[in-house]
């Protein structure tokens, strides 16, 4: 099994406006590394709490902080035939976990539950196929793209509080492979997708119409769109470039904010977010939540940026145990989960 431990709070990672303070450390006693981490509100007969999720290739565990401050594993779901690739956050959903399974690409998406009857953990398959991209949307919906090019199928599935599938709606596919989705803050019925050739597509979720396909005009291949914001008649998108060539590493920002006019399909870079002078490395992986972006850099450092200020607000260098490999925002957005390859997850408050 897995063990818990609590580390005394200490102050780390201060730079300019942001403050990262470590509050807890969770450690898998098997020492196997986590492929993903996350948070979920969990309701049970005897507690309601914001819990931490850790995913290794063969299991997903739900951790709860006990009254004395220690963390304990409440439930573990095991996977024998397919590996866990990622946890899929579901905005506003409680007591339900969504995971993507597969090897090189996602082949199945499952919901994970805990049944009070017999105290058992259960799983149900939501979608199977060659899944290229998936995103959990508000109002208990999940959007997926399967296949590629002309055979592509883009679908929004809605589900009940118990995770049962209610209805499925097809979105008109673009004639390019979708590699990432992002919902649009400020415009609930809009959804954007990023294609393999760096085109941004916009759908109307209510009608399923494909409204626009626009080039975002950046030179890095297979950029990822993390988030979109609709304001003042423009779409602002936050992009990262995990597949940019190493040789260009010095000049590649971790994130870029690009403004797009959907009426004319013209775009312009608003700001480029890079590490402060003296820090090295390029973007490895990261997450954007509200107006904050966090990334693990190839140097093993975590950096946090404020998208409104347009600058790096905190840097968390590798600690004495090793380099960082994962970073995720908590659903409360004032906490950051930071993972290392030895199966450790550190919880930081971010203010």
């Amino acid at each position: 099994g897995e063990v818990e431990c609590l580390v005394e709070p200490s102050l780390e990672g201060i730079l300019g406006e942001g403050k990262l303070q470590m509050t807890s450390k969770l450690k898998s006693c098997s020492g196997s590394s986590f492929v993903d981490v996350g948070t979920v509100w969990w309701e049970a007969a005897d507690f309601t709490a914001l819990c931490v999720l850790t995913a290794s290739e063969t299991s997903v565990s739900l951790w709860r902080q006990m009254d004395d401050g220690h963390w304990a594993v409440m439930h573990t779901w095991h996977f024998n035939k397919v590996l866990v690739i990622q946890i899929i956050p579901l905005p506003g959903v409680r007591s339900l976990v969504c995971v993507a399974l597969g090897s090189l690409e996602i082949v199945e998406i499952r919901f994970l539950f805990h049944s009070s009857e017999g105290d058992s953990v259960t799983q149900s398959s939501v979608k199977a196929g060659k899944i290229k991209a998936v995103l959990g949307l508000r109002k208990r919906r999940l959007v997926t793209s399967c296949g590629s090019l002309r055979d592509q199928e883009v679908e929004v599935a809605s589900f009940s509080e118990l995770g049962r599938s209610n209805e499925r709606q097809t979105l008109m596919p673009p004639e390019e492979t979708i590699l990432a989705f992002a919902d649009v803050e400020g415009m609930q019925e809009a959804l954007v997708g990023m294609t393999a050739t760096n085109c941004l597509v916009v759908w109307n979720l209510a009608s399923g119409q494909l409204l626009r396909k626009m080039s975002v005009g950046c030179s890095y291949p297979a950029s990822v769109c993390h988030r979109a914001y609709a304001d003042l008649g423009l779409l602002f998108v936050v992009l990262s470039h995990p597949h940019a060539k190493e040789s260009k590493a010095c000049g590649i920002p971790a994130f870029q904010v690009v403004a797009i006019n959907p009426k004319t399909a013209r775009s312009a870079t608003v700001t480029s977010l890079s590490l402060p002078l003296g820090s090295e490395g390029r973007y490895l992986e990261g997450e954007v939540r509200d107006a904050s972006a966090a990334a693990v850099m190839t140097s093993g450092t975590i950096a946090v940026w404020d998208l409104f200020l347009g600058r790096c607000t905190a840097v968390l260098p590798p600690n004495s145990e090793g380099k960082w490999s994962l970073v995720r925002w908590s659903v409360t957005d004032t906490c950051l989960l930071a993972g290392q390859n030895d199966g450790s997850v550190y919880i930081y408050s971010y203010t």
């Binding site: 119409q209 403004a259 006019n261 013209r266």
Partner: peptide, 23 residues
């Protein structure tokens, strides 16, 4: 970026594109 870089901006772009796009 300036408005001239991006062309004329419409606050109602979502509704306008929805009325123009094929169903």
């Amino acid at each position: 970026c300036s408005d001239s870089d991006l062309g004329p901006i419409s606050i109602n772009w979502f509704e306008e594109l929805s009325s123009e796009a094929p169903p």
